[in-house]
């Protein structure tokens, strides 16, 4: 934790009461005396990875596959802009929460743009992201539940959560759990799975695929995805693709293997319509809710400066 900007620690709070924490040796302590250990340089606010063991596995196996700073591409940056509409100019010098940091593909983008980023994740993906950003003083990673964020209220200028909330027990409730930590005038941008196409098909598969031991399913993906892609012009392969869609992001074979595993292995896989997501923003008093670049179920909205009540 040495060398990280103090500002990043100052926003941490007790997940139960959201009161400030103080440092006591290798732990953070709440005013009520509750201790949260710092293990391997990472503050831990949860006892384990609970229902997200698939993410613990995949992000420690593919810790750099999607990081632009590692691949030399701009695919994550392009996706970030497409799904949030946020730019370097908007984020530079701002305090941002990456809710569901994973291995850190979007934290990589934001921190390179000059933002101060706190990334949280329930899974042991934090081991990967902590290692990836060990030399960036403007990034702090913590293991915590998005449903009980370990922060003081109204501290973040921006909150982003791309492709994460639909993997929680209740997408809307976990979205709403983030809102108290957004500063007045701040913006929150999320992307969740749309209720369309292959996302619908996958939602039918999840009750079956999530039961498969992760290492076995990963081995299968490492065999099946290259096998399918070598035969992609065959009629029977296309039929298989429609019944069991694999990733076709054209970002390389490793990415497609990772993304296929990611699509079928989580415990929760919710799908939503754009109207539904915009409705969550409106019901919580957020303004200017809209899709930045026409990507369905990507929605960004603002917390009003002066709130009623």
């Amino acid at each position: 934790m040495h060398g990280k900007h103090q500002q990043l620690f100052d926003v941490l709070g007790c997940p139960e009461t959201n009161e400030p924490l103080t440092r006591d040796g290798d732990a953070l302590v709440s005013p009520a005396g509750k201790r949260y250990p710092i293990v391997g340089g990472i503050p831990r606010f949860v006892p384990s990875d609970l229902y997200v063991d698939s993410f613990s596995f995949e992000w420690n196996t593919h810790d750099q596959t999607q990081l632009d700073c590692h691949t030399g591409s701009t695919s994550s940056e392009d996706m970030f802009v497409q799904k949030t509409g946020l730019t370097r100019e908007m984020l530079e010098g701002k305090l941002v929460l990456d809710a569901g940091v994973g291995a850190g593909r979007f934290t990589d983008v934001m921190s390179r743009w000059g933002a101060e980023v706190v990334g949280i994740d329930l899974s042991y993906a934090v081991e990967a992201s902590h290692a990836n950003f060990a030399d960036r003083p403007n990034v702090l990673v913590a293991q915590a539940d998005i449903g009980k964020p370990p922060f003081q209220h109204e501290v973040f200028d921006y909150i982003v959560s791309i492709g994460v909330l639909h993997h929680t027990p209740d997408t809307r409730r976990y979205f709403e759990a983030l809102l108290p930590f957004l500063a007045p005038g701040g913006e929150i941008a999320i992307w969740v799975y749309p209720r369309e196409g292959e996302y619908v098909t996958r939602s039918h598969w999840i009750p079956f695929t999530r039961r498969i031991p992760k290492k076995m399913f990963y081995q299968w993906c490492r065999w099946y995805v290259p096998w399918m892609k070598r035969r992609k012009d065959k009629a029977f392969v296309t039929a298989c693709q429609r019944m069991f869609p694999i990733s076709t992001q054209e970002l390389g074979l490793e990415n497609d293997i990772l993304d296929t595993f990611d699509a079928y292995s989580p415990y929760y896989h919710w799908i939503h319509s754009l109207d539904e997501v915009v409705g969550w923003y409106e019901a919580n008093g957020l303004t200017d809710a809209g899709t930045p670049h026409g990507v369905s179920t990507s929605v960004r909205g603002r917390k009003p400066v002066a709130r009623g009540g």
Partner: peptide, 14 residues
């Protein structure tokens, strides 16, 4: 073992 087992399981699921 993983490939065969998962393929059989997914075929039945399909």
């Amino acid at each position: 073992f993983s490939i065969v087992t998962v393929t059989v399981y997914l075929s039945l699921s399909l």
